[in-house]
C-alpha cells in the first residue's frame, strides 16, 4: 500500500444539493438530495459508499467529478487531478460501434487521439467482446455494456476513479476479472470511490466506508464496522 499523504486529494465541506421539482408532493417544491456532507478523500485510498437506492450515492459521485456543483458548500479538488465517473449504460452513442464509443470515451477523459487509439486493442481484449466490439452498442446486453464501460475507464488513466454500481452487472467470470483488476489498481496509487449496495464487494475492496442515508452521512469509518451497522439497519427496516 502506498503512503497516504496528509493532504486530501478531494475535500467536501458542508456540501448540499437541492433542485426544484415539479412534483407537488415534494415539500416546498425542492428535492434535497444531499444535506451538509463533509468528507476528505486521500490519495491512494479506496472509499466505499453504501446506502439504499435514492440516498444520493450517484449525486455525490457527480459532485466529486465536478459534473454538478453543490447548491451550497465547497468542493476542493487538488490542482491538476482528473476524475472520471464510471456508470452503467449511460453515455454511449447507441448507433455507433463499441470501438467508436470506447474511442470517444477515452478522448473525453483527456486522452489524445493517438493515445486513445493505442488503448483500443487492450480494451477489446480485456472486455472479451470479440466481434461485438465492432457492432453498434444498441445491440449490446447490459452486461456487455458494463464490460465496455468498465474496461474503457480502467484502461484510460484517471487520478480519481469513481465507480458507480458497475460491478453489480456482468457475469461471474467478468466480475472476478474486474475485481482483480481494480485491486491491482488500488494497490498502486489509484484513488477510488466505489459505490455499491452489495456489501460483500465493498467489504472486499474498501478499507474505509461511508454510509449515506437520506442525504446525510449516517456513519464514516472502517469497512467492517460501518457495514455491520448498515446490515443491522436494513434488518430493522
Amino acid at each position: 500500500m502506498s503512503d497516504i499523504s496528509k493532504n486530501p486529494i478531494l475535500k467536501l465541506e458542508d456540501v448540499s444539493l437541492s433542485y426544484r421539482s415539479n412534483n407537488p408532493d415534494v415539500t416546498d417544491g425542492t428535492h434535497q438530495v444531499l444535506d451538509s456532507i463533509s468528507l476528505d478523500l486521500y490519495e491512494g485510498e479506496t472509499l466505499g459508499v453504501i446506502g439504499s437506492n435514492g440516498c444520493g450515492k450517484t449525486t455525490i459521485l457527480r459532485i466529486m467529478a465536478g459534473i454538478l456543483a453543490p447548491s451550497s458548500g465547497n468542493v476542493t479538488r487538488r490542482r491538476g487531478t482528473s476524475a472520471a465517473l464510471l456508470s452503467i449504460g449511460l453515455g454511449f452513442k447507441p448507433n455507433a460501434s463499441g470501438r467508436s464509443n470506447a474511442m470517444l470515451a477515452a478522448m473525453l477523459q483527456g486522452a489524445t487521439k493517438g493515445q486513445a487509439e493505442s488503448y483500443l486493442e487492450e480494451i477489446k481484449e480485456f472486455s472479451e467482446l470479440g466481434i461485438a466490439f465492432e457492432e453498434p452498442v444498441k445491440t449490446y446486453s447490459s452486461g456487455m455494456m458494463s464490460r465496455l464501460g468498465f474496461t474503457t475507464a480502467l484502461k484510460t488513466h484517471v487520478d480519481i476513479l469513481l465507480i458507480d454500481e458497475v460491478l453489480s452487472v456482468g457475469d461471474a467470470h467478468f466480475k472476478q476479472k474486474a475485481e482483480k483488476a481494480i485491486k491491482e489498481r488500488i494497490s498502486g496509487s489509484q484513488t477510488v470511490v466505489f459505490v455499491s449496495h452489495v456489501s460483500s464487494q465493498v467489504q472486499e475492496l474498501c478499507e474505509r466506508v461511508i454510509w449515506l442515508n437520506q442525504g446525510i452521512v449516517a456513519e464514516d469509518g472502517g469497512a467492517s464496522e460501518v457495514l455491520h451497522t448498515y446490515a443491522k439497519h436494513i434488518r430493522i427496516a
Binding site: A65, A84, L86, S87, L90, G91, L108
Partner: peptide
C-alpha cells in the same frame, strides 16, 4: 444528458 451525467465536459 447521459454523457453529461458521466463527465464534466
Amino acid at each position: 444528458a447521459g454523457l453529461i451525467g458521466r463527465i464534466d465536459i
